[in-house]
């Protein structure tokens, strides 16, 4: 069953920079997909179109039945409620505890406190941080901070988890742990799309790999590995 469908998609930024060109792509429900490519190849642009941070200039991007290109600004929140996003920089709120950081989004969605609590604890358990729920972000290691971000992304049980270089700031061992967490979220049924630079991770995980170069898809292989032309 298709979950993401991209047809003849182009993204040309206002300054004339073409970031994605004639992209066609299908991702099934429950898949784990890596997006790889050299710097400035268009990985983040592709990912941003999935959660409608950027609008495609041309073509279709359909996520969970919603046509992102046609989605009005005032309706974007409907798409976002089905998606969790994790970034390279953690974007945690420094004055809030781990628990509060994870609960923050749910509060702004207007959930009751007694609905929020079990969801937050479940998400923290999933990422293995239940004991540290009272800590502040600056009391945590980088890997732990990233795990809080993952908990925050999955707390509302999204159908799709999007990660843009989630291990970019972490050492190899910590990266491994983070990947274990993401993999186990995928095993629970959540579709995962992850952009990365990290050869080791891609080679080890043996998932579907989509390689892009200068905005063009150059390779799409199941159980693939990191293959980018050496010309860079």
């Amino acid at each position: 069953m298709k979950f993401i469908e991209i047809n003849n998609c182009y993204k040309i930024y206002k300054n004339g920079q073409t970031a994605i060109a004639d992209l066609n792509l299908e991702i099934k429900k429950g898949e784990f997909v890596f997006i790889i490519g050299a710097t400035a190849s268009g990985k983040s642009t592709l990912i941003k179109m999935l959660y409608r941070e950027e609008k495609p200039t041309k073509g279709e991007v359909i996520v969970g039945g919603i046509n992102v290109a046609k989605l009005r600004n005032s309706k974007v929140y409907k798409l976002r409620r089905r998606i969790g996003v994790v970034f390279q920089d953690f974007k945690l709120l420094p004055k809030l505890t781990v628990y509060e950081n994870v609960a923050f989004g749910l509060e702004s969605l207007g959930l009751k406190n007694d609905e929020i609590k079990p969801k937050v604890l479940k998400a923290l358990e999933k990422v293995g941080l239940k004991e540290k729920f009272r800590s502040f972000p600056n009391q945590l290691s980088g890997g732990e901070q990233q795990r809080v971000c993952i908990a925050r992304a999955i707390v509302n049980e999204p159908k799709l988890l999007i990660c843009d270089e989630p291990t970019g700031n972490l050492d190899p061992d910590t990266s491994k742990e983070i990947m274990k967490v993401i993999d186990s979220i995928n095993k629970d049924g959540t579709t995962v799309v992850m952009a990365t630079h990290d050869k080791d991770i891609v080679n080890r995980m043996k998932k579907r790999v989509i390689a892009i170069e200068n905005g063009v898809k150059i390779n799409d292989s199941l159980k693939g590995s990191y293959k980018v032309h050496e010309s860079h």
Binding site: V76, Y77, L79, R81, I83, L93, F104, G105, S108, R152
Partner: peptide
């Protein structure tokens, strides 16, 4: 702005933001 960004990401409606 960080709080706003997080609210946007989790799908808080524009009015509530």
């Amino acid at each position: 702005r960080n709080e706003i960004e997080i609210m946007r990401l989790v799908g808080t409606s524009n009015t509530v933001i």
